[in-house]
Amino acid sequence: MSATVAFVGCGRITRAVVSGLVAAGGAPDSIRGVSRTGAGARALAGEFGVRAATTPAEAVDGADVVVLAVHPHEAPAALTTLAGVLTGGAPVLVSLVASCRTEAVAAALPGVAVVRAVPNVAVAARRGMTVLARGPGCPPEALAAARELFAPLGEVLTAEEDVMETVSALSGAGPALVARFAQALSRAGAGQGLPASTAEALAAHAVRGTGALLTAPGATPDAVVDCVASPAGMTEAALRTLDGAGLPRAVRQALDAAVALSLGRLLAGPGGPAGDAGPRTSVSAGTGE
């Protein structure tokens, strides 16, 4: 990473991104952070050696990329503050703010190139997935700068803004959903008499190994299931029980609930909630240009 990056907001996802960047060889002195109370920025500085700024103006001064990573309810005030400090020659603004469309960010920051990004927490281990969406009038070079920022942290895809709430629910929240399943799997193993530590290790490695299988070229979930499940075998019995207990339905309901919450608080522009987010379109591995 050769760019100077300023993080406005230093919570969980900022920590994950900074952790991955530093692990990938990013120079800590090229990374700055500023937070509302200062505590988050100081914690990042203490852990990773990055610079803790005391004001947003100090953080963004001379930065090539500014990453906005505040809670949704804090976004309007943060955007107002940034509008006062991102003046001529403004850097690329990458928004990690949930439930905040690029139109809202672009309207608050005229003349600033805006890209929305949804990384997941696995970027900390450089095994993450980040999905990017271009804001109104965003030039290709701004999208390229955002892609360069996240490329060392795992895979990067692009999508249209209209599907980003679903992206947030599936990919952003996905590690927590998978971890909850691993937790249930390990507890079930412990209930069968395994030591808890052994059951947890087996569940964790099942998830890790399956992830590697699923991300291999040409792999599909059905193919992974087929390579494990023998006819009339124990795996088939377990899968039949999961389906009978409503796992597919429960997962769909969980995703629906996450998307509904995000759409319900969506900030589409300076005036408030967006309402209908519009038609759904597909995620692409291309540049989005």
Rank of each mutant, 00 (worst) to 15 (best):
G154Y: 02
G25R: 14
P279I: 01
D222Y: 06
R265C: 15
G128F: 03
G271T: 11
A45L: 04
A45P: 00
L255S: 08
E165S: 03
F7T: 05
L44C: 09
L153P: 01
T198A: 09
G191R: 00
G191F: 02
V50A: 02
L261W: 08
L132R: 00
D256Y: 02
V207C: 11
A83P: 01
L21E: 08
R252A: 15
S19V: 03
P56N: 13
R126L: 12
G33R: 01
T4I: 11
S99P: 12
A53T: 04
A268H: 10
T158S: 14
A146W: 04
G89C: 09
L239V: 05
V251N: 10
L79H: 09
T37E: 06
T220H: 06
A59D: 12
A144Y: 08
G218M: 11
R116K: 12
A41V: 03
A45T: 07
V112G: 02
L214H: 10
T241G: 14
G278D: 00
D61W: 10
A285D: 11
A117M: 05
V121D: 11
R101L: 06
L82I: 14
E58M: 05
A69S: 13
H205I: 09
R32N: 04
L239T: 01
G193P: 05
Q183A: 14
P72D: 05
C138V: 01
E58P: 07
M1P: 13
V115K: 03
A41T: 03
A122C: 11
A106S: 11
E141P: 01
A24I: 07
V94P: 09
D226R: 02
P217N: 12
A179Y: 15
T287D: 13
T158D: 06
T87S: 14
R127C: 10
P139H: 00
G271R: 04
L82A: 10
V66G: 04
G264D: 07
I13R: 01
G89D: 15
V5E: 12
L266R: 10
S197L: 09
E74R: 06
I31R: 02
R51Q: 15
L177N: 10
P270L: 02
R249P: 08
A258S: 12
T235A: 01
D64H: 06
A117C: 06
A145T: 12
F48T: 08
G135H: 07
T102Q: 10
E165W: 00
N120Q: 07
L267W: 02
A24R: 06
G189N: 03
E58L: 03
V5T: 11
V112R: 05
A274D: 07
M164N: 01
S168L: 11
A3H: 15
G9C: 05
L157H: 09
V259M: 13
G154F: 03
S186I: 08
A43V: 06
A151P: 12
Q192R: 11
T166G: 11
P110Y: 06
H205N: 15
P91C: 12
G275H: 04
V225A: 13
L266C: 15
L96C: 08
P195K: 00
G128T: 06
V224E: 06
F181D: 03
P56I: 04
E200S: 12
A274R: 00
R134G: 12
S262N: 10
G191W: 01
R36A: 13
E74D: 14
T235H: 00
V131Y: 02
C138Y: 02
V94C: 08
A146S: 10
